[in-house]
């Protein structure tokens, strides 16, 4: 449904994305995951024909984003990072305007608007001025706008930002319900969100695709690494000695401090806290602190990006 090949975009001298390539199948929900300023928004803006790429090609629903941009825009619904709202308008007037510029025929318009109002559950604020609504409602009005005219492709840039937990769950449900009927690209910097809604994830960092996988595989990869942080009183070589026969250790970092206490970081395949504690005590070292530290999303980003640059 969406083919992206070698997209590169410069803002002046600054490169925002470089050689971004991925595919989205029909009816699939794809998550674009990445830290802020990674190039998610740039990628989405190119796909929605907001701006062209510096180089590279992309087709959306079989239409070229450059040559057939009007056709692309006709089948795409887009919710930008900050919802594009006319704050002086009522929700109804606003949706009516969007329906008109999206080319929804007059006879279908009221039904179409009722439909998205219900989907985004904004029925109770229909006649209120958008500027007076809360951030959560504004976001949902933006979402309603994107879903108008039942687009085949829905592109959502961080759709749950600024919502309360209950609303986030509602929006996630809504997005899940789009599966099958619509092809969805969704961006986020929150891993669990992507995990719950998306079938496939593309991780972007520094404008490059660093991983493309299913959420399960990605989380397995995350959980595969266990990190234990310890504070031990004793000499560095004695500490290394104590742990040398634990085979699960992948990486051992010992940072001695002035007062004879070492900061020890252990990366391992499995949970080896018991072994670490036992060996420390057996060697007559003073175990002051021991805690686990799961790899965070930031670690994975860091990991993936540094690996990419080294290659």
């Amino acid at each position: 449904m969406i083919h992206v090949e070698g997209l590169t975009r410069y803002y002046g001298e600054k490169r925002a994305i470089s050689d971004v390539t991925f595919n989205v199948n029909k009816g699939e929900i794809l998550g674009l995951l990445g830290p802020n300023a990674a190039g998610k928004t740039t990628t989405m803006r190119i796909l929605t024909c907001y701006m062209p790429p510096t180089s590279g090609k992309a087709t959306v629903g079989g239409f070229d984003i450059f040559e057939q941009s009007i056709d692309v825009r006709r089948i795409t619904g887009y919710l930008p990072e900050s919802p594009p709202l006319y704050v002086d308008f009522t929700v109804n007037d606003y949706l009516d305007f969007v329906a008109k510029i999206k080319g929804v025929e007059k006879s279908r318009r009221p039904k179409e608007i009722d439909n998205v109002v219900e989907k985004a559950s904004i029925g109770d604020v229909r006649h209120r001025i958008i500027g007076k609504l809360s951030k959560g409602y504004k976001q949902r009005v933006g979402l309603a706008q994107a879903l108008l005219n039942n687009p085949q492709i829905v592109i959502l840039d961080e759709p749950t930002v600024g919502l309360d937990p209950k609303q986030i769950i509602e929006i996630r449900e809504l997005i899940k319900n789009l599966r099958g009927e619509h092809t969805v690209i969704l961006s986020s910097h929150i891993l669990p969100e992507i995990e719950q809604t998306c079938e496939r994830v593309v991780i972007i960092s520094n404008g490059k695709v660093v991983a493309e996988d299913t959420p399960q595989n990605l989380t397995n990869r995350l959980k595969g690494g266990e990190r234990t942080i310890m504070q031990i009183e004793g000499a560095e070589n004695k500490i290394r000695d104590a742990f040398k026969d634990i085979v699960q250790i992948k990486n051992l970092i010992v940072t001695p401090a002035d007062n004879g206490i070492c900061q020890v970081e252990v990366e391992s395949e499995a949970d080896i806290r018991k072994e670490l504690a036992r060996n420390t005590v057996q060697q007559n070292l003073g175990l002051l602190e021991l805690s686990t530290d799961k790899f965070t999303l930031e670690d994975i980003f860091l990991h993936l990006t540094t690996k990419e640059e080294a290659a």
Binding site: R45, T48, C49, Y50, M51, I70, R73, R74, T76, Y78, P80, S82, P84, L85, Y86, V87, V98, I101, K102, G103, Q145
Partner: peptide, 14 residues
């Protein structure tokens, strides 16, 4: 200023 150009540019309007 309000970012609504994003709406105009991404809907089928020339």
């Amino acid at each position: 200023r309000s970012g609504t150009v994003e709406l105009l540019y991404t809907t089928p309007v020339t």
